[in-house]
């Protein structure tokens, strides 16, 4: 085990000629042991509850296993089954549509609200609490509430009737063409507050002299937003879009409690299919394989977002 940190690194004092003295080596080793001891609890928890299950899932995806009978090696069969299943394509497409409602619209709304609220101090805490509230609620409760709001005689339809739009009222989540969009707006409602709070926090660290400079140049609020606020929030936008995109692609709870994939599979998402494979069909291998594929898709999307929003050198 040659120590990497004894190598000569730029900007560091070169190692004394003649090699490391035994005393220093021992001290370093014990220091490293202490460091390991500090890391160990967190590392063990992380390995035990995050890395290990992930590796185990990959392993399970190569098995044919119902959860009870002895598992048999399936090779790539589970993956083959996923890619030939007619359900995966539509469900992936639904998840991608959800990105629009879970990520794109909330980020846009969040930026808009930030531009409006930036600099105000009156009632800021109240605004933040109100907009952030959806994040605090469990998505299951959110889903059940929205199922009521969207139903035949729910608040949404009552509102439409009140303004004379009786013709468009319907059970939104049961409508073949509109269920996915209705579902998406629940996500918009839940995610917008998160984006706004992130952006507002980011906007606070912007140097006010930049705004003054724009004002001196004769720029109005729009110019101020695009010239200063937007570039300054690059980091926050990346974070917000990564979090919300993952929420869209890996969505399960919201779909499960509102439509359960219906009507007629119009709102199925990959997460729901993983659940059905594992718990309805006792196909643990297939469920694991789909989960692995879903993870890879999430990684692809997240990498793409990070590349798109990276600062050009």
């Amino acid at each position: 085990m040659a120590d990497t940190d004894t190598a000569v690194l730029p900007g560091r004092t070169p190692v004394r000629p003649g090699g490391t003295s035994p005393v220093r080596g021992r001290r370093r080793r014990s220091r490293r042991l202490i460091a390991l001891a500090y890391i160990a609890p967190a590392a063990l928890v992380y390995i035990g509850f995050a890395i290990w299950p992930a590796i185990h899932t990959v392993y399970l995806s190569f098995l044919s296993w119902d959860g009870i009978l002895p598992a048999t090696w399936a090779g790539l069969d589970n993956y083959r089954a996923i890619f030939t299943d007619s359900m995966l394509g539509p469900s992936l497409w639904h998840a991608i549509v959800l990105i629009l409602f879970f990520a794109v619209i909330p980020c846009a709304l969040g930026l808009f609200m930030t531009a409006l609220l930036q600099g105000t101090t009156r009632g800021m805490t109240t605004f933040r609490v109100i907009f952030f509230l959806p994040q605090v609620l469990p998505l299951v409760a959110v889903g059940i509430t929205w199922r009521w709001l969207y139903n035949d005689e729910g608040l949404v339809n009552q509102g439409l009737r009140a303004v004379g739009l009786d013709g468009v009222t319907r059970a939104w989540l049961g409508d073949y063409n509109l269920a996915l969009i209705a579902l998406g707006f629940i996500g918009t409602w839940a995610m917008s507050g998160l984006c706004m709070v992130l952006f507002l926090a980011g906007a606070q660290k912007i140097d006010t002299s930049l705004y003054e400079a724009v004002a001196i140049d004769g720029g109005g609020p729009v110019r101020r937003f695009f010239a200063v606020t937007l570039p300054a929030l690059r980091g926050e936008i990346t974070i917000a879009s990564v979090i919300t995109t993952i929420a869209a692609l890996a969505s399960f709870d919201l779909v499960f409690v509102t439509t359960n994939g219906g009507p007629a599979n119009q709102t199925t998402v990959p997460g729901l299919l993983v659940y059905r494979l594992a718990f309805n069909e006792s196909n643990i291998g297939g469920a694991a394989a789909l989960a692995v594929v879903l993870t890879l898709i999430v990684i692809v999307f997240v990498t793409a977002i990070r590349r798109l929003t990276r600062e050009k050198p």
Binding site: M1, T4, W52, H56, L69, P70, A71
Partner: peptide, 26 residues
């Protein structure tokens, strides 16, 4: 950095042994 692949190998070995799932068949 060298501990990472080691951990992965260890975990994989554990996975392989842990998956001698319950028997039966009759």
């Amino acid at each position: 950095m060298r501990t990472k692949p080691l951990a992965a190998v260890l975990a994989l070995a554990l996975a392989l042994t842990a998956c001698a799932e319950s028997g039966g068949g009759e």
